[in-house]
């Protein structure tokens, strides 16, 4: 997900979407959308179901936000990408990657991270970000 300054109840209501990458699937046209909306963004049907899509995806494109506003300044550079999981395009922050390591087409996977926090007294908002897929290297070293 990307940064949103949500109120405590608003983040709480969407927690499954943020924590588990729960998407909406339209029972009429079969297409996926994320985050889940009240109606299918493609055909308008309200006959929807929620499904979990914790799979690996491909990074289609990205942007690097160097001039992060306000309290996000401390997190700069913020990298936001479009991740394609089985045809579903998700706009999400990327993590565990530096600007010079970015490349379109790399495999990425969802991980739970701190999205932001409401000063040091308020709520901590956790949500899924994407990071480069962890490639098993230990076999090489035995």
């Amino acid at each position: 997900m990307t940064v949103e300054d949500l109120s405590v109840p608003a983040h709480w209501r969407r927690r499954l979407t943020y924590y588990r990458l729960v998407a909406g699937r339209c029972k009429k046209c079969g297409r996926l959308h994320y985050p889940p909306a009240p109606a299918c963004p493609y055909c308008g049907s309200k006959d929807l179901e929620l499904i979990e899509i914790n799979n690996k995806g491909k990074l289609e494109t990205y942007t690097i936000i160097y001039s992060a506003p306000g309290k996000s300044r401390g997190r700069a550079p913020i990298i936001v990408g479009v991740v394609n999981i089985e045809g579903l395009r998700i706009v999400s922050e990327l993590t565990d990657i530096e600007p010079e390591e970015l490349k379109t087409g790399i495999d990425v996977e969802p991980v739970l991270r701190r999205m932001d926090e409401d000063t040091n007294k308020g709520i901590i908002r956790y949500a899924i970000k994407f990071r480069p897929v962890l490639v098993p290297k230990s076999e090489e070293r035995g």
Partner: peptide, 13 residues
Amino acid sequence: AGLDEDSVTMGWE
């Protein structure tokens, strides 16, 4: 740990 990590996110993984 990175800036967006804490004991909860690491424990989750």
